[in-house]
Design a protein around this nucleic acid. Structure first.
Length: 554
RNA sequence: CCCCCUGUAGCUCAGCUGGACAGAGCGGCGGACUUCUAAUCCGAUGGUCGCAGGUUCGAGUCCUGCCAGGGGGGCCA
C-alpha cells in the first residue's frame, strides 16, 4: 500500500463518516477529500500518521479524540491496515499489515523509470525561461546556478505531467552590444578598452581570434568596424555559451533573440494589444504603460522620447508573444538583482488582459558567491575576475557542480567553496548519494554472478526495522516529486535523495543481502534483492531529475 | 523612504506548505573493515529556532512590530 492509497483510504473513511452523520459535521460542509498521511518521527507512532481528526474538529461538533476513535474504527476495516491507534490530542497512527509495505518494492521495480511520475500538471504547457545572459561574455557562476536549477526544474515539472519548453532569451539588442563591439575593436587595436566596456581577458583573446580570421576588419571605418566586431563577437559568444551549457547537460528548446522580437513584428503586436486594452498613453514625448492600474508603484516607459524602445517594451512584448505561442504558464527564473522586474511584469501581464496569478510565475533566486582560501572571490563580468561555468565544470565535474547548485533552496544565498569543491572530498553530498547507487549496482552484479535472480517476492519477510525504514522512504518519492513541482523547489529532490541514501546505507549495514559462502539462497535474500533493486530505481530516477549521473561503479 | 530574501547545533544548510520530545552533513570526541564497495556505519556531544507580542487545541512554520545582514527601486542595461 502506497502513501497515496492510504491517503485516499483515510479520505473515503472521512467521507463515509460524514455521510453517516457520525462526526457532527454538516453533510454539505466543505470537507477535504484527501488527508495527507505523514511519516511519524518515532517508530512507536506507527508507519503513518494522519491529523485528519484534528483538522475536522475545527468545524465538527465533537472533540478531536472522539473523531479520531470513529475514524480508527473505520480504518481498521481497511484491507492492508494491521492496526490503528489514537494518540495525543487526536493523532491517528496507522500500522500496515506485514507485507503491505514490502509490496512497494514490486511496484517500484515494475514501474522502473516511471516510478515517481505524476499527473498533477497534465496538459499544462509551461514556458520556462532561465539564464538569458547577454551574449557579451562567458556564462559565470550565477548563470551556473540557474542552469542547474532551471534544467532540474524543467525535468521535475515534466515528471509532474507538464509540457515544458526550456527557453533562453538572448539580449542581443541595445547599447551593451555596442560596448562589446567597441571593446573588441579596441583590444584588437591594442588600445585601452573604454571605461564602460568589457575588460575580461576573454575580450582580448576573442579580438585576436577575430582579427586572425578577418585581418581586413580593422580597415573598415570605425563605425562599421565596431559593428563587424560586435556581430562576430556575438556569434562566437553565443556559440560558446551554447556549448558550455551542453557540456553541463542543459539543452534549450528555444533560443529567442530580442532582435527577432522586433524584426518579426512581435513588439508591434504586443504594443497594439496593450493599446487596444487601453492602458497606453503619451506623455512628455514618450509612450507609457499605465502599470499603476495593476499595483505597480509607478507607470513605465515603453518608447522613450528619442524613439528607442525600452527593455520593458521588449519584456512585455516577449510575454505577450509567449502567450500567443500557446503557453499556459510563463515561468521566469531571475536573480535577486532583478526582483524589481516582478511588479511591473505582473502589471504588464494584467494590462495584456491576463491574470498574472495564473499565467505568470517568477522565481527569484539569491546570488551565488565564491570563496577560496577563506577569501571571497569577486566575480564581475566587466572587471574580468570571473569564474565561469566552464571553469566550474572543469574543476569539479558537471555532476558535483550541478548537485551543489541544486541542493539548496534558491531563497538562500549560496556560497561555494572552491577548496572544498576542488578537493573532491566527501564533503560533497553528491558522492554520498551516488555511492549508494554504485553500492547497490555492485550488489546486483554479484547477485547476477551467483545466478541469483530476484525471483518471487515474499513481501512478508521484510520485517526488519531497517527494511521498514527503507520501504517507507521509497514510498515518499512520488510525493517528493509532486511537491517539488508544485512549489518549484528542485532542492527537495536532492534532500530526499540524501535521506534515502542514508536510510539505504543503514539498511545495508544491518541487513545482509546476498548469501555468505555456501549459505543456501532463501526467500529473505530474494526479498532483500527486490528492495535493493527498488532503491536503485528510485536513486536513479531522482538523480535523473537533477541531471546528475547515477554511476554503476565508483 | 519603499520592496524582496535571509537569520535554526562550532560551520554549511534542511525542516514534508500548522502537528507528537527540533534534523542532516561537515568539523571535533570515542568505536566498527578475515563477510555483498569503510566514498560506509554505530555511539556520545552539541540549539532560549534573531527579539517581542498575536492568532489556536498546537507555531521553527501563519500575522504585526522591532534588530541584524544581503539585494533591489532609473526615459540604465
Amino acid at each position: 500500500m502506497t502513501p497515496e492509497q492510504l491517503s485516499a483510504a483515510v479520505g473515503s473513511c472521512v467521507q463515509d463518516a460524514v455521510r453517516d452523520g457520525e462526526l457532527g459535521v454538516d453533510a454539505h460542509a466543505a470537507v477535504p477529500e484527501r488527508f495527507t498521511v505523514t511519516r511519524p518521527r518515532h517508530p512507536e507512532h506507527g508507519d503513518y500518521t494522519t491529523t485528519a481528526a484534528l483538522q475536522l474538529a475545527q468545524h465538527a461538533g465533537r472533540a478531536p479524540r472522539e473523531i479520531a476513535e470513529l475514524l480508527a474504527v473505520r480504518l481498521r476495516a481497511v484491507p492492508g491496515i494491521a492496526g490503528v491507534d489514537v494518540a495525543g490530542p487526536g493523532f491517528v497512527n496507522i500500522t500496515l499489515a506485514p507485507g503491505e509495505a514490502g509490496e512497494l518494492a514490486r511496484t517500484i521495480v515494475t514501474a522502473g523509470p516511471a516510478y515517481g511520475l505524476g499527473t498533477a500538471l497534465a496538459g499544462v504547457r509551461v514556458d520556462l525561461e532561465f539564464i538569458s545572459a547577454n551574449p557579451t561574455g562567458p556564462l559565470h557562476l550565477g548563470h551556473a546556478r540557474w542552469a542547474a536549477v532551471g534544467d532540474a526544474l524543467a525535468r521535475i515539472l515534466t515528471a509532474a505531467g507538464a509540457e515544458v519548453t526550456r527557453e533562453f532569451y538572448i539580449n542581443d539588442r541595445g547599447v551593451q552590444m555596442d560596448r562589446f563591439g567597441a571593446s573588441l575593436r579596441a583590444a584588437a587595436l591594442g588600445e585601452p578598452v573604454p571605461a564602460d566596456g568589457y575588460h575580461g581577458e576573454y575580450v582580448g583573446e576573442m579580438a585576436r581570434e577575430i582579427l586572425a580570421e578577418d585581418p581586413g576588419i580593422l580597415a573598415l571605418d570605425p563605425g562599421a568596424s565596431i559593428v563587424a566586431f560586435r556581430e562576430e563577437g556575438y556569434r562566437r559568444q553565443l556559440a560558446n555559451q551554447r556549448s558550455e551549457l551542453e557540456a553541463f547537460g542543459v539543452h534549450f528548446d528555444v533560443w529567442y533573440s530580442e532582435r527577432e522580437l522586433y524584426t518579426s513584428g512581435a513588439v508591434e503586436r504586443g504594443l497594439a494589444r496593450l493599446h487596444q486594452a487601453g492602458h497606453v498613453y503619451q506623455s512628455d514625448g514618450a509612450t507609457w504603460l499605465r502599470t499603476t492600474d495593476f499595483g505597480d508603484d509607478k507607470d513605465r516607459v515603453l518608447v522613450r522620447s528619442d524613439g528607442e524602445s525600452t527593455y520593458f517594451a521588449s519584456d512585455t512584448a516577449y510575454y505577450v508573444d509567449k502567450r500567443s505561442r500557446g503557453f499556459d504558464v510563463c515561468l521566469y527564473l531571475l536573480g535577486a538583482d532583478h526582483h524589481g522586474y516582478v511588479g511591473r511584469l505582473r502589471a504588464a501581464a494584467a494590462c495584456a488582459g491576463d491574470d498574472p496569478d495564473r499565467t505568470l510565475q517568477v522565481l527569484i533566486g539569491q546570488l551565488v558567491s565564491l570563496v577560496q582560501g577563506g577569501e571571497p572571490v569577486r566575480m564581475s563580468k566587466r572587471a574580468g575576475t570571473i569564474i565561469t561555468l566552464a571553469d566550474l565544470v572543469e574543476w569539479v565535474g558537471a555532476d558535483a557542480a550541478r548537485y551543489a547548485l541544486t541542493r539548496s533552496s534558491t531563497d538562500s544565498p549560496l556560497t561555494l567553496d572552491v577548496d572544498v569543491l576542488t578537493a573532491r572530498t566527501n564533503d560533497n553530498p553528491v558522492y554520498y548519494v551516488q555511492y549508494a547507487h554504485a553500492r547497490i549496482a555492485s550488489v546486483l552484479r554479484h547477485a547476477q554472478e551467483l545466478d541469483l535472480e530476484a525471483g518471487e517476492l515474499v513481501a512478508t519477510l521484510l520485517v526488519h526495522p531497517r527494511e521498514g525504514d527503507l520501504l517507507r522512504a521509497l514510498g515518499e518519492f512520488p510525493r517528493v516529486v509532486a511537491s517539488a513541482a508544485e512549489l518549484c523547489e528542485p532542492h527537495r529532490v536532492a534532500r530526499y535523495l540524501e535521506e534515502l541514501a542514508g536510510v539505504y546505507h543503514r539498511f545495508y549495514d544491518a541487513c545482509r543481502v546476498l548469501p555468505r559462502g555456501d549459505e543456501p539462497v532463501t526467500d529473505r535474500h530474494r526479498a532483500r534483492l527486490w528492495v535493493c533493486a527498488a532503491t536503485r530505481t528510485v536513486l536513479a530516477n531522482g538523480l535523473g531529475l537533477l541531471g546528475v549521473d547515477a554511476p554503476e561503479r565508483m
